[in-house]
Structure formats: C-alpha cells, structure tokens
Nucleic acid binder design. Structure first.
Lengths: 340, 340
DNA sequence: TTGTAGGCGTTATCAG
DNA sequence: CTGATAACGCCTACAA
C-alpha cells in the first residue's frame, strides 16, 4: 500500500501538497496537480480509507441487521439496499439476527460505535413480541441514525419504511370475495410480527365490512414449520374453507402444494393468495397470486432515507414512508387472469 | 462517543494508563485496572474501531462478493459466512456483483485498500466465461488474502472452496439409471459457469461409463429465463426423455411445475433431480430429490480458510477444500423414498 | 503556490 | 506501576 508520504518522497513535494493535488484543490497549480495525479495513478495509489475515516469522522458504511436472508423477501430487500448504497457510494455491512434478540443486540452494539454511519434494522421476531425494546433504544438513541424497515415497533421513534400491509391484506381478501370465495381463511407462520398482525387486521376488517355473507374470520396460526401439514389439513377438514390468504410467500406455496397433494384443486376448490413476489411465487404450480411489497424498493427507500439522515443530522422529525402494495393476479385464484 | 482522553481527564490518569488498564495489561496495578474498567463501563465507553484499525493495521472485516443473493444457494452460503465470521469476531461487508464483471471489479477495488482484511469471492457469470481475469488478479495479488468459493477459475491461484460437482452429478445420473430411467437429459440455465460445466461433465461421464443402454447425452441449455418453457417442452417433444438432471434448484422446480402443467407425471413419466437443498426443493410438489452442496458449510469453510490466511500471511501454498455433496432422495424420483 | 504543524483516537515503546 | 511521546495515514488551518 503506497502512502502519501511515499509519493511525497518520490515526487519531492510535501505530503500536504500531494494530498491537496489529489483532492483537486484550487490551491495547487494545474501543472503539479497533473503531475501528481498521473504519478499517483501509475503507482496505483489509493488513499487508506481507515485513515480518511478517522480524520473525517465517517465511514461511508451502512450497517444492515435483518432477521434472515433465506426468505426471498429479505433477500430482495437486501438486494435493493446493496444497489442503492452502491449508487450512493456507501458500503454495506451485514448482520443476520436469525430472529434472535441477543444476536440483534450484539450486532447493534458492534455497529453503533463508529463502525458505520447509520443502521438499517428489521426487528427479530423475538424482539417484536416483547414490550421491552431497550436493547434497541440504548445503543442507538442520539448516536447514529437508524431506519427501521418492514418489521418495526410502535415504541421506537425512528424513521420507518413500511408496507401498507393492512391495505394489501384487505384488498386481497376483497379480491377473493369478488371472485366468488365465501369462506376465506387467514394463515400465518410469522405470528407476532408486526407485519403479520397488520395483515391479519386487514383481513379481519375486510371480512367484517365486505362480506356479503356472515362468515366469521378464520385464523390459522402455525408456530412451527413441522406442524404445517397437520394444522392445515386439520383446519381444512374441520371447517368449510374455499380460500386462503397466507401471510408470506413460502406458506402460500406450501399451502398450494400440500392441498394439491391432498386432492384439492387450486384454485377451483381453494384459491390461494400470498405475500411477496419472488421466484417461488412466480414459478409455483399454479403460479401464485400475490401481494407484492416491492421488496427492492423498500431497501432502496430505506437507504435513501438513511443517507438523508446521515447528511442532515439536525433534522429531528421522524420520517415514515409507506410503500404501496400491488396485487399480482396469477392462476392460484379464480377470476381474471391478467398475468402468467 | 467518549474517548480515552475524556476518561483520562475525569479519572486523573494518563491516556496511556487508561488504554493499558482497559486492555488488561500486566503493567497496571489491579486496583487501578478495576477502577478504570468500572468507570469506563459505566460511562459506556467503547473504543473507536476506526482508530484501532488505523493503529493496528487491520479491520476485522471480511469482504464478500457474490453474484446474487436471491438464489437460495448463495443466500445460504452468505448465511454460513455471516455465522462463522460472527463466531470469529469478524464483521461482513457485502457486495453483490449481479453477475456483472464491472461491478465485481469495482467492489474488489473498493475492498482491497484496507477496507477489509480479506475477501471471499464467487465469480460473476460474465467473468467465468472470459479467459481474461486480470481485473481479479490486479487488485488482489499480494495485497490481501482472497478465497474463492463455488464459482472459481483455473487461472487464479487463490485458496478455493468448491463442491464436488462432478461427483454429485455423476452419482445423481447413476441414481436415475438405477431407478430405471434410460433417457436422461441434463438441463442448465447457468451455462458457462464453472459449476455448471463440472456438473455437465459428471453427467456425461456417467452416461458414457454407466449406461447399460446406448443413450447419448442430451444437453438442454437455456440462456434466457423467458425461453425456459419453450425450450423445455420442445426438447420433450422432439426426444424421448424420462429423467432430467437440472443444474440448479430453481430450474429443477420450474421443470417439475412446467412438466406437470403439460400433463407429465412426476416421477413416473419423468424423474427430476436438482442441485441445492433449499426451501424450494423441500416444499415443491412433489418434493425435489436434490444434490445438496451444504451451502452453509461452504460459507463456513470459506471464512475459516480466509481467517487462517489472514492470521498467517506467510503461508504461501494455496489451500483447496472440496465439500462433498450429498444426494437427498425425495419424491421427484422413483425408487426408494427415504425422505419426505 | 507550496510547506509546516497539529490532530483524529488508539496502541506501543521507552523513561521515570 | 505510571506517564510522556511517537506513530498509524490522512486532511486542513495557517504560515511562508
């Protein structure tokens, strides 16, 4: 690694002159600027970012803490984050909480001491269930900017990027009704997350306000993946159900596959709608009607807001952006078939 | 952010004493160590990592450059990387190349100047096709340790973590034969990657050496996702095929779904085997028989090797680890059904 | 237009 | 056992 000092020796100029020349300062004559820049380039000189960071008090790094990276939703958000950060010349430091609060906390601690200029956080399942979110507040408040996305918490007064989950679920439920379904169930494997709750509420509201019939809401909650088939099939047998709104992509696809294995026809016997528009949704059989949250856009917006906050630390008022959902109709539901 | 200097003022001790006390140096008396440590803790003091990095010439950050994070394989590798890095007290800086060489290069450049202590790289599709891998060599050789994983390149003399793709494909092909398939095709959408080539070779070899019949290898290559259905169905119609070995998870699942939509029965008409054991494979209908590469383990090993290299920069000989594949038999193939 | 000096927060060497 | 001093590599008043 060549340093300014080395260049200065070779070029017979002072370190500060070199530094200014490389930073295109007006103090330096054009001719020496040219000379220095050429030379530095040919030498493959690159400023040591650590030294710059120390001097300038910033890192140009954004810290990201997400529950996991396997779910396509989070993978897509991460993709959006990386892309926008890259555009804005920021690097991305990632930590995966595994939905574990301890890990989330330690990630936060390690980030919030000058490792990063700001944090993007989507809360662990464990954290969302709790009333106590001290571990988030403690290490954050008044230190560095933090933007929460998707999995947020009422008590946290940070900027947020969320999805209109209520609305998305409401419309999806209504769509099922409009296409002739009368006994619609809501299924969630991500219970206790803010997003699941919002979706449930949207569903429940729609059932109350829109249902021409008298059908009560049916909530199927599955807290362990191994129980998925048992619980689902039991529910199907004990109740009359002709449509399922699943709170996430994987559940929706599993629902389709399990029901088909058990002799149900999709969408004729049961219509299915999920959340998240990933590969699973697109390439399932039949392709899944889904509520897209525009995951990449969420990531993109989160970065934009965070960077704005980084550049403008005085602005106090929390920013709340809500990304509109969009229902993509495919063949897991009856009615018009606009997409394939 | 409190600093050593601030502590020194409050405690009436010199900066260096504080520093030593916090680092538990034997030079300092137990009593003052206690005093200083307690105090620093209550003050919420945390050393500024940037300053430490500058002083100590390391970052405790590992840079990761991957083609994408949407494919479950890479998502799982990333998960493994994050976990192991976290265990070893390293942070993870991530860059997504999008299979684009330019992006890969700029990520490499930005990392290889002291932003990270070492790099984990899986080559972009674009890069693998080329003979010219100068952009990788240039910014890397002799600078910081780099470990390639999965998508590697012959001409790069780095450490590598790879999968025994040849063997995995060979065995999968043989398994298809053993369960009564005679016209086995190989399908790839990731042509020109090293992994796809190895898998193809494993398949071809098995066809030559193991086939009781005279069946020639059939290679179906799909370079654009939109053409998937066309090419697949055309191939099915023009040739007699009773089994497909797909080079990745998504292709395998799409194959199953498309074939079923076109009236084929899986596995009775066509057996299908894929690569990667992710959610898609587990929850497809029927569940996919697949060659697991132990993606998390790849990530884990990559970190281990890299850290070893970081801690031991003198050791010159390249390390090459090969992770064994494992075939998980599910219901997309005939024969024994060991898993569900 | 160029150079000098100081400092960002730490750690390490060497005196005291 | 404690403290002054220098140094990591860079930037930036201020001086020349």
């Amino acid at each position: 690694m060549t340093t300014l000092k080395e260049l200065s020796v070779v070029l017979g100029l002072s370190v500060s002159t070199i530094s200014k020349a490389l930073n295109d300062s007006t103090e330096i004559s054009v001719s020496t600027k040219m000379k220095v820049q050429r030379f530095a380039f040919s030498y493959g000189y690159r400023p040591n970012p650590t030294a710059q960071n120390l001097k300038l008090g910033r890192t140009r790094v954004i810290g990201v803490i997400i529950p996991n990276v396997i779910d396509e939703f989070f993978a897509m958000v991460l993709h959006g984050i990386e892309e926008e950060a890259s555009n804005l010349q920021y690097k991305v430091l990632i930590s995966i909480s595994n939905d574990d609060q301890k890990k989330e906390e330690s990630a936060l601690i390690s980030m919030v001491n000058g490792s990063v200029d700001g944090v993007l956080l989507s809360l662990a399942k464990e954290t969302q269930g709790l009333e106590n979110i001290a571990h988030v507040n403690n290490f954050t408040t008044g230190r560095i900017p933090m933007v929460l996305f998707d999995r947020v918490h009422q008590q946290l007064r940070n900027d947020t990027i969320t999805v209109d989950d209520f609305d998305g679920a409401y419309k999806a439920t209504k769509y099922l009704m409009d296409t002739g379904c009368t006994n619609i169930a809501f299924l969630s494997t991500i219970t206790k997350t803010s997003v699941s709750e919002m979706r449930k509420e949207g569903y429940v509201q729609a059932m109350h306000l829109e249902a021409a019939c008298r059908c009560d809401p049916t909530i199927i909650e599955i807290n362990h993946y191994d129980l998925f088939e048992d619980i689902l099939i039991t529910a199907m047998q004990s109740q009359r159900i002709d449509a399922i709104l699943a709170a996430d992509e994987l559940s929706a696809v599993r629902t389709i596959n399990l029901l088909q294995s058990n002799g149900f026809k999709i969408p004729d016997d049961i219509a299915v709608i999920g959340f998240t528009n990933g590969q699973m949704a697109q390439y399932s059989n039949p392709p899944l009607t889904t509520v897209s949250q525009h995951a990449e856009k969420i990531g993109e917006e989160a970065v934009k807001v965070l960077v704005k906050r980084i550049l403008n630390p005085n602005y106090k008022k929390p920013i709340h952006r809500v990304i509109k959902t969009e229902m993509l109709v495919r063949r897991s539901t009856k009615g018009e078939k606009t997409l394939t």
